[in-house]
């Protein structure tokens, strides 16, 4: 006879009916001091980041660094190829004619900024993600339809099944359930 299978718990999932309800619930959870939690809404709710107490994203810095890298690499490449590696006089102009190098410098700056934005965003969101525990909940599937959710993870140091459940129920959640990992 096998041992009874012990479930590992991902956390608590609370369901709300409106954007306003989840907004105020987020404020309560934020003020209670939780750190490992997230909200899920079918559309972007303005200022929800503030209600959740999220810090500004580091993505702009990634984009900026990538843009600078792209532009300087492009300029360096053009400088090296046309003055050091294989200098050719073109239209009687100097080897290092910065004017001629501007379009490529600009384009590569833009290209690497865009890469930084897209892949940086994917990386920060840990995407692509092949599995997420929240989909173990049947009710959660409506997060992309008409329901609003808050999930507090069990790994949160403040997590306590009874107290956290009580907190979520007190915020006007229409349904609170435990989700398997």
């Amino acid at each position: 006879m096998s041992k009874p299978h012990k479930k590992k718990i991902y956390g608590l999932l609370a369901e709300y009916d409106s954007a306003a309800a989840v907004f105020h619930a987020c404020e309560t959870v934020r003020d209670a001091g939780y750190s490992a939690w997230d909200s899920h809404t079918p559309f972007a709710v303005h200022n929800l980041d503030k209600a959740m107490g999220l810090k500004p994203s580091v993505l702009p810095w990634i984009v900026f660094a990538m843009g600078i890298t792209g532009a300087s690499c492009a300029l360096l490449l053009q400088w090296w190829t046309s003055t050091v590696d294989y200098p050719i006089i073109i239209a009687g102009k100097p080897y290092f004619s910065w004017q001629a190098f501007v379009p490529v410098t600009f384009e590569l700056g833009v290209l690497l900024s865009a890469f930084g934005a897209v892949f940086g965003m994917l990386g920060l969101n840990r995407l692509p993600m092949w599995y997420h525990s929240l989909f173990n909940s049947e009710r959660f599937h409506r997060f992309s339809d008409d329901k609003f959710f808050i999930a507090i993870e069990a790994r949160d140091p403040k997590y306590d099944l009874e107290r956290t459940r009580k907190l979520l129920e007190g915020t006007g959640a229409t349904f609170v359930e435990e989700v398997e990992d």
């Binding site: 009687g92 004017q99 379009p103």
Partner: peptide, 12 residues
């Protein structure tokens, strides 16, 4: 501004 300058600089 740069495009205006650039074409004139190139054609010379």
């Amino acid at each position: 501004g740069f495009s205006q300058y650039f074409l004139i600089w190139y054609a010379n």
